[in-house]
Structures are given as structure tokens and as C-alpha cells.
Design a protein around this nucleic acid. Structure first.
Lengths: 357, 357
DNA sequence: CTGTTAGCGCCTTCAG
DNA sequence: CTGAAGGCGCTAACAG
């Protein structure tokens, strides 16, 4: 009915000073019960909603909120299995502490920048994303604690990663041990990453430019290459397809890798979503997995265990990663932490010895 | 290195007044390029992160954020299929407008209250939840626009609901038309709802207390009762089990309804998650669905179409509901809106004529 | 165009 | 235990 009610209105109505009214809300034990009662009644009658957090926050207080930038549209927190797991981890610690989780739209660089610039939060969880450096710079300018996920951005910004090298190496060794010698690699490409000077690159384009891509991809590729090299296989000679993780891209990538490397007996994928697409595409072409073709993924999303055949993959603790990230963002350690979470080779049904010829 | 840098620091360093510095960031076109450049450089050198949104917000500006209280732990936004769909709808709108989505922990009343009291957002989407009245009161006290979902709380608070009565009636009529005469009802119970004076009531307890429960349940039950009554079946005589929607509760509820009403040829459920549990439990007991038992759900979550047999259910536009809610919260209409979204009977494989005896 | 002056709503000294 | 004054960091309205 009336305009906004302020603390001063309540104080006046109750016939006390502003300071006293403030105390009623913040240190009720320090004010005489009778007066307190009077103020509370006045507040109730005026429909006063309590001290405005907007002002309170300015006083330097905490907001009890974590900002999460995923490097993708917020909707992908619900649509994408990987992000869903990660966000669930973040959410769990928010629930523990009654903290709010603020998801920041970051489908494009500008939106993300604005979000990070304006979010009123206590800390940021910044998941690896294109343009992440800019976002981190903004957050640091605001002197807000941040933790980078799946990415390192220097010693003084906390980071959480998984053992990508170890995982990729384990995957390669597994295949090698089974007897495979002819490989193909399906790598991911981050949405919005510039490739060949363009942002539109839904799938494909074999090449060596991985070294310029997002850091985790580099690690995984490097480990593949190293292990294969140990076995006398030059990574240069291994067909490579890069593809986005969203929309049709995985399917297109799967098709392309099978087209470009029909002789490969094993496909190393850097994400389960790719691996699952490869399995489907292979089946479509009448190639039996794992009898004709072995496929290994990375991540171990829920779908991996349910596919037909179930996917051999490198399991990373997605949800735990979210949890750890949120904890660090919510109360940052005095000195930055750099965690590397362990991964694990999970052997299921999509890998087997190569067909004998 | 330094403490927080403020606009005044930048102004001083650049040798301009505070107001000018402010203009550089807010109305750059209104300041001479040379000066602007100077201020920008000073900002850069000092590591100034731009105007602090905490202060900006106090000026009465918008934050560009929606608060969402789901009446559940934040983690359920990712774990629960229904909420996931709803939140995805909200997220879509946030993405469109580059708005932040702040999920407020509301697993218990106190957490929710604190969240609503402290969130710095432009509007609230409050999904039906136990204690929702208290939350709405707080939000109103703060003079923040709110939209209630799946619930009406008076004419001056916008609300979005689905046509629960129509849907439930359609479900009942469908079963009646197939020839069913012996029914059972599996209703939901909201987490935390007080029942029989206690908060712990994982599943079961037949009774008539539905009239005191959350409003949508009342509508659905009422419509069931009405339609059955038209066919000469007294709702009083229809076995009823109430059960939570989370954890083991749906399974327990399913077991109980089959135990308590072994003679029923059709089970009317108020949520797909219950209906799916009933199907599974029936199969476990060797009762074929739909030959021996018909089951109908409500919601049409993605799993409904994939179950065996696929579920006949009342489809409600979950995601659209989220979208509409977010839009209203983000820019509230001058006068409150009260929307009722349509639902639709989707006949799939879980319903058939009753077995002849 | 630029600088000065009031607040935004609250909290926290500091005297009474 | 109370009341008055200053400031959190910024923006807006007004003079210059």
C-alpha cells in the first residue's frame, strides 16, 4: 500500500531512535524486552520486511551466495549431463550452508563479463570457458575470491582440476594392452573457441592445433601422444577430429572420425558424449562395438554405464569437483589451493582386443 | 597488493572529480575522450574493477537477477526431473536477458526464510512449497515482485498454475470410459508438510486429510472425486495413499497402494514419479500393466514416455511454466496476472480396459 | 563538459 | 541502554 518502509519509519512509529531499532534486528538481546516488543510490533504493523539486504551488503557484510559461471548458457546446467553433475555438487554445499547459488549466464563473452561484473556474491566458481581470462580479471578486480575449475590461471588463483594426463594415459595404455595399434582421436572443442579465425566450427577439421585449445584438452592429447609414442606410434599419424560438445556436433564428429579413420580399431575420446556418439554411429554402420571397434570415453557421465555396450571410460569425480569448488569459493583459504582430483579407468564393455585380420 | 580500490581513488589518481569518474563508467559518451582515456588508464593501473555493484544496487537500480525458491534443496533442481524441467524454463529466460538465476536453498522453512529475506534480486519465483505463505509475506514486505507457481495466494500476487482440475478430470474420465469401476488414488505429499502433527511421514496413511494439503493436490483430488461421483462411485470409498515425491517414498507409496487396494483395476496418480513406481511395483508382483492394472500419471516428465509400458498421463507444460514465471518475475506487469496453463491427456500404453473376471 | 552536493538504507562508533 | 553523527561506494541533480 505505502511505498517502501524503512527502518527509520519503524523507529519513528515505535518512538525510538534509529540505532535502537537497528539493534532490535541485529542484536535483540541488547535491548530491553519491552522496547523490543514495541519496535517489533511497529514493524509488523507497517509491513516492514526487515533491514534491506541491499544496504546491509554495502556495509561490507557477506551475502552468502556463490556465483557460478559455467561458460555456457544457464539452461545447460539442466540440459547437459556433465554440467548437471557439477552444479549438483555446488548445490549440495549451498544447501549445507543455506547459501544461494547464482548461476551467471555465460553463453557469450559479453554476457559473462557483465554477469561477473555485477553479481553480488561472496565468491565465484569459474568453470573453464572461452574467454575465461577476462572473466577472472574482472573478478579479481572486484577482489572477490575465485576458484577456477578445469583450468589453471596462475599460482594466486585457486584451481581445481582432474588428473587429465593420468586418465588419458590410462586410457591409451588400456587399449595398447589389449593389442590395438591403429587409433583415432576424437577431441572436444569448446563452444565459442576460435578456430581458423572463425567461431563457427561445429565439428571436424583434423589438425594439430590442439595445443592452442583449452588446457585440459592439451593435457589429454599430450598424454595420448606420449603413451602412443612409447609404443612406437607417432601421434602425428593418428587421425584427429575436433568437435563441439553440444547439439549435433558430437554426432557429426562421430561420423567424421569413422569416415576419416576407417582403419582404426580404437577411438580415444575426450568426452563420454563423443564416445557414446561414436558407439551409436558405429552400430549404425554395422560395426560391432567392441568386436570391430573399441571406444573409450572420458568423464563417466551416468549415461556411460547405461549405453549398449556400456562404455569403458575414465571416471572423473564430477560432483565432488563441484563440491570442492563451492567450498573454496564460499570460504576461501588464506593461500590459494591447487587441487588435482584423481580419475580412474573404468573398464566396461566398449573395449576389447582388436579384430584379427 | 592494495586494499579495495574505489572510484574515488581512481578519480584522485586521474586528477578528476568523483562525478566525472563516475560518468566515465556510466555515460562515457558524455565525457571528453582525453579525460576519459586518462581515467580509464588510472583505473587500469590501480586495478580498479569498475563500480561496485553492491553500492550501485543501493541506488535503487535493478540487479538483473531472479530469485527462485523451489520449496526444496537446491540440489533437487538437478536431481529431480520435474524441477529440472521447471528450472530449465526459468534459465532460458535468464539466458535471453543475461539475467542471473539465484537458486535459494529452501529445504526447510528457516533456510528459505533467510534466503528470501537476504537475496538481492529483482523478483522472486516462488514455487509451491510448505510454508510458502511465510515466504511470500517476507517477499512482499521487501516490496519485491513475486510470482507464485502452482499456487494461488490471493488476487494481488501473480500466480501461475496448471489446469489441475481439468487434467485430473480427464484422467478419471479416460479410465471410466475404458470401463474401470474399482479405483485407487496415490496422492503426493509435500516434503515437510505437517501430517498428523509430525513432519516425518515418508509414505502412506490413507485418509481424507487431503483437503488441508497443498492446493494443487486438493484440486486434483477434488476433480477425481467429482468425476467418479458422476459415475456413481463415492470418493470416500476409494482407497487413498499419500506419499512424498522424493527418496524411497514413491516406492513405498506404490507398495502400499497395491497392498491396500488389491482389488483396484486402475490407479490414479498425481505425479508421474508415483505412477512409474506403481508400474514397477506391479510388474514385480507379476501383475501386467495395463492388462491387469491401469495406471495414469500427471506431469509427463521425460521418463514417462520411456517407461515400459509408456505411461498414460496428464501432460503439463513444465518448462513453459518456468519460462512464464521468470518473465513475470523479471518484469512484473502493472497488475497481477493469474495464469492457468492448459494440460493434456496423453494416452500411451499404461491404460486399457479392466480385465474381465 | 566538469565539479559539488546530497542522498540510497543501514550499521557502528561515540558520547550521553 | 539510548540518540546523533559519520560513512559504506556510488549516482544523480545541480551549479559552475
Amino acid at each position: 500500500m505505502s511505498g517502501p518502509v524503512r527502518l527509520s519509519d519503524v523507529a519513528r512509529a515505535a518512538g525510538v531512535s534509529l540505532g535502537t531499532a537497528s539493534n532490535v534486528f541485529n542484536r535483540p538481546e541488547g535491548v530491553r524486552p519491552q522496547i523490543r516488543e514495541r519496535v517489533e510490533r511497529a514493524a509488523r504493523e507497517l509491513g516492514y520486511g526487515g533491514p534491506d539486504p541491499k544496504a546491509r551488503v554495502l556495509m561490507g557484510g557477506k551475502v552468502n551466495a556463490v556465483g557460478v559461471v559455467m561458460g555456457a548458457a544457464v539452461v545447460h546446467a539442466f540440459d547437459n549431463v556433465y554440467l548437471r553433475g557439477f552444479m549438483a555438487g555446488v548445490a549440495e554445499v549451498c544447501d549445507e550452508r543455506w547459501a544461494a547459488m547464482v548461476a551467471i549466464s555465460s553463453q557469450d563473452a559479453e554476457a559473462a563479463a557483465r554477469g561477473v561484473r555485477n553479481a553480488v556474491v561472496d565468491g565465484f566458481v569459474i568453470h573453464n570457458a572461452p574467454h575465461i581470462e577476462g572473466l577472472i580479471a574482472i573478478a579479481r578486480g572486484r577482489r572477490i575470491p575465485i576458484v577456477a575449475v578445469d583450468r589453471t590461471v596462475g599460482p594466486d588463483v585457486s584451481s581445481i582440476r582432474v588428473d587429465s594426463r593420468g586418465g588419458a594415459a590410462a586410457a591409451a595404455r588400456h587399449l595398447l594392452a589389449l593389442g590395438h595399434r591403429r587409433f583415432a582421436i576424437l577431441s572436444w572443442l569448446q563452444e565459442g573457441a576460435a578456430v581458423d579465425g572463425t567461431n563457427y566450427h561445429p565439428a571436424g577439421a583434423t589438425g594439430q592445433r590442439l595445443v592452442e585449445a583449452a588446457i585440459d584438452v592439451v593435457d589429454r592429447y599430450g598424454a595420448f601422444a606420449e603413451v602412443l609414442a612409447e609404443a612406437g606410434i607417432a601421434a602425428n599419424a593418428v587421425p584427429l577430429v575436433e568437435s563441439y560438445l553440444t547439439g549435433d556436433a558430437p554426432d557429426i564428429g562421430a561420423r567424421m572420425i569413422l569416415d576419416k579413420a576407417p582403419e582404426a580399431t580404437a577411438v580415444l575420446c575426450m568426452a563420454d558424449i563423443h564416445a557414446l556418439a561414436v558407439i551409436e554411429e558405429a552400430k549404425r554402420r554395422g560395426r560391432s562395438v567392441p568386436r570391430d571397434l573399441s571406444v573409450v570415453g572420458f568423464d563417466d557421465v551416468p549415461e556411460a554405464a547405461a549405453s549398449e555396450p556400456p562404455l569403458t571410460t575414465i571416471a572423473q569425480p564430477i560432483r565432488e569437483k563441484g563440491r570442492v569448488a563451492a567450498r573454496i569459493a564460499l570460504d576461501p583459504p588464506a593461500t590459494p589451493r591447487h587441487l588435482v582430483l584423481p580419475v580412474e579407468l573404468v573398464v566396461r564393455g566398449s573395449t576389447a582386443p582388436p579384430p584379427r585380420e
